[in-house]
């Protein structure tokens, strides 16, 4: 196996008497993009903050680059780049000054800092904002600068806490493309996001957190196959008739999910199921407002997992 960049064992984070992270175990290998998914308040940011040494570990062990984060934070932080959930740029400085000052914190020589800052402005498509004071940038531009700033020290590990929140579609695709490029060049990444498409595109493996515990883990494709099968059939049918409609087709239905009044059926054999269902609806005279067959995606898995847990609570 490749060397592990992050190793969390029984990792716990407690705030006063509230346990935000309840003993999680995971390993992130060199060169992979590892996703942390989960609903609001699941503990994603709490984990990210422990990894970049901001928040002390309450219990358990957290090693980054093989070093304990609680004792080796300074060395570790030199090798990581952090995009926090909330921007913390220097609002009174210009874009250029922000990058140069930040490079100083890594003790980068001035000429190198200027070269890196120039590269980053180009990389994040921010060249014409170089002289702008950060306070006056739009939210999305700030976000891009925050991401660029995290790349200054050419980090071996990038921690991205909802990096693309607030970005327009163009900028989001730009960032995805840039992140893929970095991954190809061997950068390890830890990504938290609420865009499941983003996680599906970028993550090699991921965990789904819920109330500080790991609900599920695996590669995106693997999770889709395990929980939903490849296809999703959306049906606009009265909730009262759902039961009758599915009768006799249980063999094909891997899982189902209510989204509002709509019924979503997950299956490995979408076409066959769609035909059978329309046949049955026609035979029984059940009105179908709309029907759509589409590939199942990570969002379906996420909704199913977190939805089930909600029901259990």
């Amino acid at each position: 196996m490749r060397r592990s960049v992050i190793a969390a064992r029984n990792l716990v984070k407690r705030f006063a008497d509230f346990e935000a992270v309840k003993g999680v175990n995971f390993t992130v290998c060199g060169g992979e993009c590892f996703g942390l998914l989960g609903p609001n308040g699941a503990g994603k940011t709490s984990i990210a903050k422990m990894i970049y040494g901001f928040s002390p570990v309450t219990a358990g062990k957290l090693e980054v680059f093989g070093e304990d984060i609680m004792t080796g934070a300074r060395n570790i932080k030199a090798k990581i780049g952090v995009v926090p959930q909330e921007d913390n740029l220097d609002p009174e400085l210009t874009v250029w000054e922000n990058l140069l000052v930040y490079a100083g914190y890594f003790r980068m020589p001035k000429d190198m800092a200027q070269r890196r800052a120039g590269d980053i402005l180009a990389f994040m498509d921010l060249q014409d904002k170089s002289g702008a004071v950060v306070e006056q940038l739009s939210g999305g531009l700030k976000r891009r600068l925050t991401i660029g700033r995290a790349l200054l020290n050419q980090p071996a590990l990038l921690i991205l806490d909802e990096p693309t929140t607030g970005l327009d579609p163009y900028a989001r695709h730009l960032v995805w493309q840039r992140l893929k490029k970095l991954k190809e060049s061997g950068t390890t990444m830890l990504l938290t996001t609420h865009y499941l498409e983003e996680a599906g595109q970028l993550c090699d493996r991921l965990i789904v957190l819920y109330h500080g515990e790991i609900l599920e883990r695996g590669a995106p494709r693997e999770l889709i196959e395990r929980h939903t099968g490849n296809d999703a059939l959306e049906l606009g049918v009265e909730p009262a008739r759902h039961g009758v409609l599915m009768e006799g087709n249980e063999d094909l239905i891997k899982a189902r999910q209510m989204l509002g009044d709509d019924l979503v059926l997950f299956t490995g054999h979408g076409r066959e199921l769609a035909e059978r269902i329309s046949g049955r609806a026609a035979a029984l005279g059940i009105p179908v407002r709309h029907q759509r067959l589409r590939p199942a995606n990570l969002e379906d898995v996420f909704l199913k997992l977190t939805g089930e847990t909600l029901k259990e609570d």
């Binding site: 300074r74 030199a78 913390n88 609002p91 914190y105």
Partner: peptide
């Protein structure tokens, strides 16, 4: 509200 300190300590600065 500027969170400047928080930005600094994500680097080798303590």
């Amino acid at each position: 509200h500027q969170k400047v300190f928080q930005g600094m300590v994500a680097t080798p600065v303590s």
